[in-house]
Amino acid sequence: MAIVAWTLIIISFIIAFVGLVYPIIPASLFVFLGFILYGLFFSFGELPWWFWTAEILFAVLLFGADFLANAVGVKRFGGSKAGMWGSTVGLIAGPFLIPVFGILAGPFIGAVAAELIFNRMTPGRALKSGVGSLVGFLTSVAAKGAIQLVMIVLFVIVVS
């Protein structure tokens, strides 16, 4: 039964990392699912209150990193709120509309389209905003990946 439990826990952690690039998958929920599975199969008593407090703070940091990286990327490259919203819509729609490359092309196209439509930017400035959204997305993936890795390493330290 322990093999089944650890297999399910590891699968939930893997799905969490897939969620870094597919925003439809709630990555932090799958990390927590791994912790809950551990508690159900083994014991919640092995996971002290400070562990849960730290993990919740890391989860808040995950959400903040996602928003902040995208906003800073678009803003730093001359984009506006419309560009940020377009990037977000593109991030969600991109993987469905362009199956393999949509995760990268979606935010870029969304930011460029929003800047052209709502702010009537020149194509050059709109493209620069699109590049900013792409940089923001990639920065967000790296930051969230690092935070999730820290969350899982803390879990492994506590349970071992």
Score class of each variant (00 low, 15 high):
residue 33 L to I: 12
residue 136 G to W: 03
residue 56 I to Q: 08
residue 93 A to F: 05
residue 95 P to W: 01
residue 9 I to W: 00
residue 158 V to D: 08
residue 103 I to M: 13
residue 103 I to N: 07
residue 53 T to E: 14
residue 37 L to R: 04
residue 36 I to T: 12
residue 121 M to H: 10
residue 37 L to F: 04
residue 78 G to I: 07
residue 7 T to F: 11
residue 121 M to N: 05
residue 97 L to A: 13
residue 29 L to A: 09
residue 129 S to Y: 07
residue 11 I to V: 15
residue 155 F to C: 01
residue 14 I to D: 03
residue 146 A to Y: 08
residue 102 G to T: 03
residue 146 A to H: 08
residue 99 P to V: 02
residue 94 G to W: 01
residue 32 F to V: 12
residue 112 V to H: 02
residue 72 V to R: 08
residue 64 G to N: 06
residue 2 A to R: 09
residue 67 F to M: 10
residue 125 R to G: 06
residue 27 A to N: 06
residue 94 G to T: 02
residue 80 S to Y: 10
residue 45 G to K: 12
residue 47 L to C: 07
residue 120 R to E: 15
residue 30 F to S: 04
residue 140 S to H: 01
residue 1 M to N: 11
residue 142 A to I: 11
residue 85 W to I: 15
residue 83 G to R: 00
residue 125 R to W: 09
residue 9 I to F: 09
residue 27 A to G: 13
residue 86 G to D: 04
residue 149 L to F: 14
residue 67 F to I: 13
residue 40 L to S: 12
residue 140 S to D: 04
residue 20 L to H: 03
residue 28 S to V: 15
residue 83 G to H: 04
residue 14 I to N: 04
residue 146 A to S: 12
residue 27 A to V: 07
residue 15 I to H: 07
residue 89 V to C: 05
residue 132 G to T: 07
residue 137 F to S: 02
residue 16 A to R: 01
residue 7 T to N: 08
residue 152 I to F: 09
residue 123 P to Y: 11
residue 19 G to I: 05
residue 154 L to Y: 11
residue 157 I to E: 12
residue 8 L to Y: 06
residue 26 P to K: 11
residue 71 A to L: 12
residue 44 F to A: 06
residue 3 I to G: 10
residue 101 F to C: 10
residue 150 V to E: 07
residue 115 E to P: 06
residue 91 L to D: 00
residue 139 T to N: 12
residue 158 V to M: 12
residue 86 G to P: 00
residue 154 L to D: 10
residue 155 F to L: 05
residue 131 V to A: 10
residue 55 E to M: 15
residue 69 A to L: 00
residue 99 P to M: 02
residue 38 Y to M: 14
residue 54 A to Q: 13
residue 14 I to H: 04
residue 34 G to E: 00
residue 69 A to E: 02
residue 134 L to I: 08
residue 111 A to S: 12
residue 66 D to M: 06
residue 58 F to P: 01
